[in-house]
Nucleic acid binder design. Structure first.
Length: 492
RNA sequence: GGCCCCUUGGUCAAGCGGUCAAGACACCGGCCUUUCAAGCCGGUAACACGGGUUCGAUUCCCGUAGGGGUCACCA
């Protein structure tokens, strides 16, 4: 393969979508795999919907995912500028050329006229398409209209009776009849080119060799091909990857839950997990492995193994994959990832002391195996916070554990013993509890489960010794006392 | 509606004429564990349908059905 040049060209009309992220990823993997060039530019020709803040968000999301680029916004390059709105002067000569050669023409139809035409056609049961009203306007008529103050859009004159063939790297040969395509607008009446036109000019100017994008663009491709043909440009290779679907099999959108990369980041997903997951959505490596580092993905990626059929976004699998990466994270990083969520839940102060931070790190570490994404942390470490014990009414095993004949004695005695310490480690805590058991002749469930429930109100939770150690003897004593009073209230 | 794409378990997905049709997530069961989870072991579960082609179709071709995309002065 010769020099590879690919691009990711989102429109800044919203945050980076999960589908866009996958397109970016596939382009990036392909570029890196072949030692090619990755370009990032913006399709900001929609003045109404484009916003600078979205551009910043998209770029930030790409960086967070680890998808860097060699040319484009922020890094510059030989084909700058990389925002379509800043490239208007570059487009001008091509527009003039098409107009002069009669391959495009001015259209003075108003929005209302066009709408009326569409209505009429569909009322008669015919397909809505441009009727070609301005197709054969004379130059003189055009000048007259313009002099009268009418603003014109530019339409591409679609040649009749042509077969337009897309040789798609993932879909194979796809044929379209030019007769099925109405003359389409390439420059809006405000002088700004439309997407279908500008994208061709940019890709040609920037020598893009491979266009890897979502399948929704497949139907647009013949229009673009016609423009390549009209301007005599070299046609790049196309690869249309299938769509990402929601659980209900319709195109992934907001109502399917978290749909932007930023949302996953906020929830505490790791970029390497998202990248790994997205890579496996619509592409599959050889072999049976599922977990791949970015470097491994780069080594293995190929368009030949990209699937044609759409894929449902499987939240469960993403969660599983994220939990896998979470388990590999050093304790300090895991803690840092979780801290904002603990602070938000009001469990930990926003700027904890070093000692407190060290303690939080240990607490968070106990939840590591249970954690699917960082935002879940408050619910998982609740037991480590607070003075009081509330018996979970749903938890029948818990109530049972406090109803052993020996329960009050176990709790009272362990409390006394705990009071003798200012601090203790897991070892000491365990020994102390065992001594209580020996003293009172209690072991097994009536000993351990009773203490667990007396401490947390629940029959399930973190390892008891860990819990004791992290709670510390003084808090343990206070909680036990609290439960003791609770029990007296029940019996007395 | 026209055009285009797609169709293997609930989901992702391997397969590229001959397989007992991989693997992963989820689910169920067991082991481990003084709880839970993790981990390990095992289990349930699929080629949309109908015609061809072929000695032989999940695999190739044609229909049907279903799903999706697109037909904007949006991208």
């Amino acid at each position: 393969m010769g020099e590879v040049r690919v691009r990711f060209a989102p429109s800044p009309t919203g945050p980076l979508h999960i589908g866009g992220a996958r397109s970016a990823l596939f382009n990036w993997l392909f570029a890196r795999r072949h030692g090619g060039t990755m370009i990032v530019r913006m399709e900001d020709t929609d003045l109404n919907r484009s916003a600078e803040e979205y551009e910043a968000m998209i770029l930030e999301a790409l960086r967070w995912l680890g998808l860097d680029w060699d040319e484009g916004i922020g890094v510059g390059g030989p084909h700058a500028p990389y925002r379509q709105r800043e490239r208007l002067d570059i487009y001008r000569p091509y527009i003039d050329r098409l107009l002069n050669e009669g391959k495009a023409y001015l259209c003075f139809c108003s929005e209302e006229e066009l709408e009326a035409g569409r209505q009429e056609l569909s009322a008669r049961g015919e397909l809505p398409r441009y009727l070609g009203k301005c197709r054969n306007l004379t130059a003189a008529a055009c000048r007259e209209k313009q002099a009268a103050g009418y603003r014109a859009a530019v339409r591409f004159r679609v040649p009749e009776g042509q077969l337009v063939v897309v040789n798609d790297l993932v879909r194979g040969r796809v044929e379209f009849e030019s007769d099925g395509i109405g003359d389409f607008i390439i420059v809006k009446s405000d002088g700004i080119p439309t997407y279908n036109f500008a994208v061709v000019l940019d890709d040609a100017e920037m020598n893009v060799t491979h266009i890897i994008r979502g399948e929704e663009h497949l139907s647009n491709t013949p229009r673009q091909l016609l423009i390549y043909r009209a301007l005599g440009f070299t046609v790049p290779q196309f690869a249309h990857i299938s769509l990402i679907l929601g659980e209900d099999r319709s195109k992934m959108s907001k109502r399917h839950g978290a749909v932007s990369v930023a949302q996953y980041r906020r929830l505490g997903y790791l970029p390497e997990a998202l990248v790994n997951f997205l890579a496996l959505l619509g592409w599959s490596p050889e072999g049976e492995r599922e977990i791949f580092s970015v470097q491994e993905l780069v080594q293995q990626f190929s368009l030949e193994r990209v699937s044609k059929s759409p894929a449902v976004f499987n939240f469960d699998k993403l969660k599983w994959m994220n939990s896998h990466y979470l388990r590999q994270l050093p304790a300090s990083e895991l803690s840092a990832l979780c801290l904002p969520h603990l602070a938000e839940a009001g469990l930990v102060e926003a700027e904890p002391s070093p000692q407190r931070l060290a303690w939080v790190e240990r607490v968070v570490a106990t939840a590591r195996e249970h954690l699917e994404y960082a935002a879940q942390i408050p619910g998982l470490v609740q037991d480590f916070f607070g003075e009081e014990v509330t018996l979970d009414p749903q938890d029948t095993d818990a109530a049972e554990a406090l109803r052993f004949e020996t329960s009050p004695a176990v709790i009272a005695r362990f409390r006394e013993k705990a009071l003798e310490f200012n601090e203790w480690d897991e070892e000491t805590a365990r020994e102390t509890l065992k001594e209580v058991g020996k003293e009172l002749g209690v072991k097994g469930k009536p000993l351990f489960m009773t203490v667990r429930v007396a401490l947390t109100g629940k029959s399930h939770g973190r390892d008891l010794n860990t819990l004791l150690a992290l709670l510390g003897p003084q808090l343990v004593a206070r909680r036990l006392q609290h439960t003791l009073l609770l029990l007296q209230g029940l019996t007395g």
